[in-house]
Amino acid sequence: MELRQLEYVLAVAEELHFGRAAARMHVTQQSVSEQVRRLERELGSPLFARTSRRVSLTTAGEAFLPEARRVVDAARHALDVGRRSARGGMEIRVGYADDLGPRLFGLAVPRAPSIKVTPRPMTTPEQIAALSEHRLDLGLGWTPDLRPGLSSLLVAREPLVVALAEGHPLADGAAVDPARLSHQPLAVVPRDVNPLLHDRIIGQLVTRGAAVTVHQEIPSLDRMLPLVLAGSALGITVPSAAAANPFAGVVYRYFSDPGPYIDCSLVWRRDDTSVAVAELVGVVRELRDEGAFLPPDLDGGHR
């Protein structure tokens, strides 16, 4: 059994087509077919049922596939570890969600000059998947949905704030009771971008008395604010994003206590032995304890 054969099996299983699998692997279809047949002969059972119209996994293929994927992932991880070790082990890939890059790369990275960081802008769920698949070494995201084998560090807990046009009745200077958002058109982060974050925001507003009406799901604050200014929606965001995206005619109000919040967390693999990962996690922890990641106090936010 060869690693390349396992990679061909995975490609065919994902494409359910030998031609597409071959194109993906940059080899001929004959090569893929021959290597899969050799592996099937070694196993003593077909992995795929082939007809002129379709390819499907056999029962043996269904059982074999998860183990093949684990072997291929482990081999790729070993290769990645070896390459990084050859470079001194101080090069790491770091993912970050919207609005979190400046804090991480502006504050933490300069304190670890020996580490070469490759930034990867990614949604939080994308970071979690990439970490699990060894395509990423560290991730900084909003309310991550942790998988087994991952560790996390709470970096900051940010209160939610509501973005309003200056003339909106809720912009009267007082902290906003979440119940006053009932049936107001809200703009929030899309559920398909970060399901746990979306549900956490909506759930907290509901438990605090709001009858939530989502008008639009918008992934970034700069795209949300024109709707707010036009009076089409009220935006839900956090102080750090608000401070980084000033917009004339838009004001922010905190919610009355106990206010809803979301978490910003650093995530890495529990079994990662990289010196660079451990060092950067330590730097972020020190900065957090020094208060460097505390959310800004919005001028005129009226807690």
Rank of each mutant, 00 (worst) to 15 (best):
Y261G: 00
H215M: 02
L266G: 02
D80E: 15
G167T: 08
S56L: 09
G291V: 05
G231F: 07
A187R: 03
H17Q: 13
P295T: 11
E42H: 11
A278S: 15
A156I: 01
L153M: 07
A187K: 03
L229P: 00
D297S: 15
D80Y: 14
F48H: 09
T58I: 05
S182A: 11
E34C: 02
A248K: 15
R270D: 15
R20L: 15
D272N: 11
G249K: 11
R70G: 00
A242S: 10
P258C: 09
F255H: 12
S85M: 13
G209W: 10
E217F: 06
P148V: 03
D272M: 04
A276L: 12
R180I: 10
G89P: 02
S45Q: 14
I262D: 03
A21S: 05
R37C: 00
V9P: 00
V281W: 07
R87N: 12
R191W: 11
V27F: 01
D145E: 13
S265I: 01
R70Q: 09
T124G: 07
G231Q: 06
I201D: 01
E42A: 12
H302T: 10
E133F: 10
S182I: 09
R111I: 03
D222G: 05
P113R: 08
A11V: 09
E91K: 13
L57T: 01
S33F: 12
V94W: 09
P159Y: 09
Q184W: 02
R83F: 11
L10S: 04
I115H: 12
